[in-house]
């Protein structure tokens, strides 16, 4: 297997007396979709926020392209080429697709906004992701469906030549057809060589697009396995009980020191 793009080694994180993450090892590989699964409270969001630089780590290493890096905030992480697409998408309804994709990073020419260049690049990016459900890059986001908004949010992350995209529950609020579009898009991102992290509760989605599955159970990594080696019910067991057959945490985490 190729070198991981991003790797966390032995990460611990506590909030006061609550030990949320225990010795987490997590890796994102280029060209692969890594699904991060786990029940509510398993530590998925905390892990994502550590990767995104929003939270610091108590112990453990953060490696990017094999080299340890110091991250002190979301800006450092964005500078590495890691983009996070949050569940609530963070788009401005009153702006159009192009304006949203360039928000905060507008291109200017002679001090004024360079609209032609931005519009052309937005279209290029959407076209390269084979997005064809959006009628025009000058549509306001208010007129888009949930799936289209998700598409715009993902395209925004891709526009900046990011190497890793983290998607937090991208299909949670979508219908069947829209979920289809977004999953296709997720697959295409990985096919372009990006490392994709998919956080999802939906096993159907996970088995469809993920290459690897990392299951969290009560703040520990229960398993980190290729998707083809496990089946649906095994993953559900890993999520709910922390172990499944010879996979998973050996000791009973309920009695382990917390």
């Amino acid at each position: 297997m190729s070198e991981p793009l991003l790797e966390l080694r032995g990460v611990n994180k506590s909030f006061g007396v609550v030990h949320v993450l225990h010795d987490i090892d997590f890796a994102v590989y280029p060209g692969q979709v890594t699904a991060l699964v786990g029940d509510n409270g398993a530590g998925k969001s905390t892990l994502v926020k550590i990767i995104a630089g929003i939270y610091g780590r108590d112990t453990g290493d953060y490696l990017f392209e094999g080299k340890p890096v110091e991250v002190h905030g979301p800006r450092d992480v964005a500078a590495l080429g890691v983009e996070v697409v949050y569940q609530d998408l963070a788009l401005c309804d009153n702006l159009d697709i192009t304006q949203n994709m360039f928000l905060g990073r507008e291109q200017t020419k002679g001090g004024t906004l360079d609209e032609p260049a931005m519009e052309a690049r937005a279209r290029e990016t959407l076209a390269s992701l084979s997005v064809r459900t959006v009628k025009s890059v000058r549509q306001t986001v208010a007129s888009l469906s949930g799936g289209q908004r998700q598409t715009v949010a993902i395209a925004k992350a891709v526009l900046w030549n990011s190497k890793i995209v983290l998607l937090d529950e991208p299909t949670a609020a979508l219908g069947v057809a829209q979920t289809r579009q977004v999953l296709d898009l997720v697959r295409r991102l990985a096919d372009r060589g990006l490392g994709v992290v998919l956080i999802s509760h939906n096993m159907g989605d996970v088995f469809e697009v993920a290459d690897r599955i990392t299951a969290l159970y009560l703040g520990r990594v229960a398993a980190d396995v290729p998707t083809k080696d496990v089946n649906h019910s095994q993953v559900v067991e890993l999520i709910t009980a922390g172990r499944s057959g010879n996979l998973g945490i050996s000791e009973n985490p309920a009695t382990a020191s917390v």
Partner: peptide, 21 residues
């Protein structure tokens, strides 16, 4: 339009599709 049968292989077609608004 919501295309349910789209796959990664149709990228070139999609490019031209998107090229017209």
């Amino acid at each position: 339009t919501t295309d349910t049968n789209e796959s990664g292989g149709t990228a070139t077609v999609a490019d031209t599709d998107f090229a017209r608004d």
